[in-house]
Design a binder for these strands. Structure first.
Length: 571
DNA sequence: GCCGTTTTCGGCCCGACTGTTTTCAGTCG
């Protein structure tokens, strides 16, 4: 049986969109949005939650939405949505993907002009129909026509946009018109993917007009979406949206807190403030009655004034960090210095580009205590995977090299998991290899149950230490397959098999919310999957995921020293 | 529609920018 999580998320999203077009209560719409967000953050099978009558335990899901989820799980359909769709066709919701068009405008376009789709909207602009609509002036129509070219921006892998982000903040710093420039938003929270950049800067308001002019006229800007004296949004030629928020220096901490978000974190903070008769905004924390300023200079002061310890940006997702900060029980997140080893590295013995010696030299020069060399074995589409003979040759080369280095080396392999969950490698190699990663490299479109079973079967193999890039996602190439993680974690505990956080920029697999869920049940480890020596630096992306997943040293296999690690492995 | 350290009703985060609304609704973050 398939997991129904995606279906439930889709149908409830549709309900939210249609309700928005119908102009329903914003609180009702918000309730559906919140329920969808909550469902995206759980790794459990929604069907099981329904069966065990635990679905209403999920925060944001109550009796009404819980009942609808039950109906979707049991019948695959939702009568309530079907009824709504008799009033508004589903396609109308596509209009809301255009910048500046929300539910109200989409509703008017449909009701007053019969426009159902983006294509219909283009036609209505072309033949002048849109101009006939009250309130739609030439300027407004031109703006919509322009916005049509760009649907609301997509998520992009953080590593791909890091350089753009620094370039823009450098540009702002170099104007010499600002005192401090910070990149906030999901960039500062170190999310694997970001939708836009939120830049926060403080300075003398006398300079703001000039800063905004320089910002909106940067050569990389393809379009100015909004611009005002304290806030502007531009679209860059590479389709990245950048927000710039300017504040006075004495609002620095409050502005950074606001800029960093997340939205859910901010809302929770403000809700708590409300109960304490405080108001929190981007200018500061105030007493509600008399507007008296309580704190604004630093984030630490503001958190403290709200009765909390400083919350690292990576945790600001309303996953319990606020409650933990109030009870002084935030996790001691891992740092770069805590990482003792890298357990997934390739060399030119398979599809890596660096030699064994080059890789070891590079790793030895970093602060690592150990690495695992894990070249490919099995029928995978690369030029030259290892066979038994070459594995032995590699071992010999390794033995000759080790004395020259301080770093400890596990001679491992990465093996392929076949469709049936078998391990495509000779047993002698599995016995001899000191760290065996099993990964899926083909047939990605099996059902959820088949994929889960495929991995469970592989984990049952007594020589497998770890599952590499567990969901197989590759940004801008393919979605990851869904897995039943509760079953996989159970099997991991039973068989002493661990899950990888693959740190390749285009993988970043598994996601932080999965790590958050499983970390206390089964240790994880970060592997760079390096193919070049410089790829060893990709460990950063894995650390981001681990930190966002609330990992402390005890949750990560590669925070163990070499000897402790060996004791943990099953062979 | 959800929720509760003022708890089963009456609230629900807060503010900037846009357009044409002469006082605010819509959209966004």
């Amino acid at each position: 049986m398939e997991l129904k999580n995606d279906l439930v998320i889709n149908l409830l999203t549709n309900v939210g969109d249609i309700l928005e077009i119908l102009g329903e209560s914003v609180y009702k719409i918000r309730a559906y949005r919140k329920a969808v967000e909550a469902l995206k953050e759980i790794t459990e099978d929604v069907e099981n939650l329904v069966k065990e009558k635990k679905i209403e335990d999920v925060p944001g899901i109550g009796e009404a939405i819980g009942g609808k989820i039950k109906e979707i799980v049991e019948t695959g359909k939702l009568y309530y949505l079907d009824k709504l769709l008799k009033q508004i066709p589903l396609e109308v919701t596509s209009l809301m993907k255009i910048e500046g068009i929300g539910g109200k405008t989409a509703g008017r376009l449909y009701h007053e002009l019969g426009i159902k789709s983006i294509k219909g909207l283009e036609e209505a602009i072309g033949n002048g129909l849109l101009l006939s609509l009250p309130g739609f002036t030439e300027a407004k129509v031109a703006k919509i026509a322009n916005a049509l070219k760009s649907v609301k921006s997509e998520q992009k892998p953080l590593p791909n946009i890091e350089q753009h982000a620094f370039k823009i903040s450098d540009f702002l710093v170099n104007t010499n018109l600002l005192l401090k420039v910070d990149i906030g938003g999901s960039f500062r929270r170190k999310k694997s993917t970001v939708r836009d950049l939120d830049i926060h800067a403080v300075g003398d308001p006398a300079n703001f007009e000039q800063v905004m002019k320089l910002f909106t006229e940067m050569t990389e800007v393809s379009e100015v979406i909004v611009t005002g004296s304290s806030k502007s949004t531009v679209k860059l030629v590479n389709d990245l949206n950048v927000d710039l928020r300017l504040l006075e220096e004495n609002s620095y901490g409050a502005g950074l807190l606001y800029s960093t978000g997340s939205r859910a974190h901010t809302i929770k903070l403000r809700t708590i403030c409300d109960k304490k008769n405080l108001t929190l905004n981007e200018y500061g924390l105030f007493k509600e009655k008399n507007d008296e300023l309580i704190a604004s200079l630093t984030e630490t002061e503001i958190y403290k004034a709200m009765g909390m310890s400083f919350i690292p940006p990576e945790l600001r997702e309303d996953r319990g960090e606020i409650e933990a900060a109030m009870s002084n029980s935030l996790p001691r997140l891992i740092t770069r210095e805590d990482i003792m080893g890298d357990l997934h590295i390739h060399t030119n013995w398979s599809d890596g580009k660096a030699s064994l010696k080059e890789m070891i030299t590079a790793a030895d020069n970093s602060s690592l205590e150990y690495i695992a060399i894990t070249d490919h074995v099995g029928k995978i589409p690369i030029y030259r995977p290892l066979n038994k003979t070459r594995f032995n040759e590699q071992k010999k080369e390794l033995e000759n090299l080790v004395s020259d280095f301080e770093i400890k080396i596990l001679h491992g392999i990465e093996v392929d998991i076949t469709k049936e969950g078998k391990i495509d490698a000779p047993k002698e190699m599995l016995i001899e290899a000191e760290f065996v990663i099993a990964s899926i490299h083909s047939l990605f479109d099996l059902s959820e149950e088949e994929m889960t079973q495929r991995i469970l079967t592989a984990m049952d193999n007594e020589y497998i230490n770890a599952i590499g890039h567990p969901t197989g996602r590759m940004f801008e190439k393919r979605e990851g397959y869904n897995l039943n993680f509760s079953k996989i974690v159970e099997k991991g505990k039973e068989t002493n098999t661990f899950l990888e956080i693959n740190a390749q920029p285009n993988r970043q697999d598994i996601d932080d919310y999965i790590v958050f869920d499983i970390r206390v049940k089964l240790p994880v480890y970060i592997g760079t999957d390096a193919h070049y020596t410089k790829d060893l630096e990709n460990i950063t992306w894995g650390i981001n995921i681990a930190r966002r997943g609330w990992c402390e040293k005890k949750h990560l296999l590669n925070c163990l020293g070499y000897k402790e690690l060996l004791r943990k492995l099953k062979h």
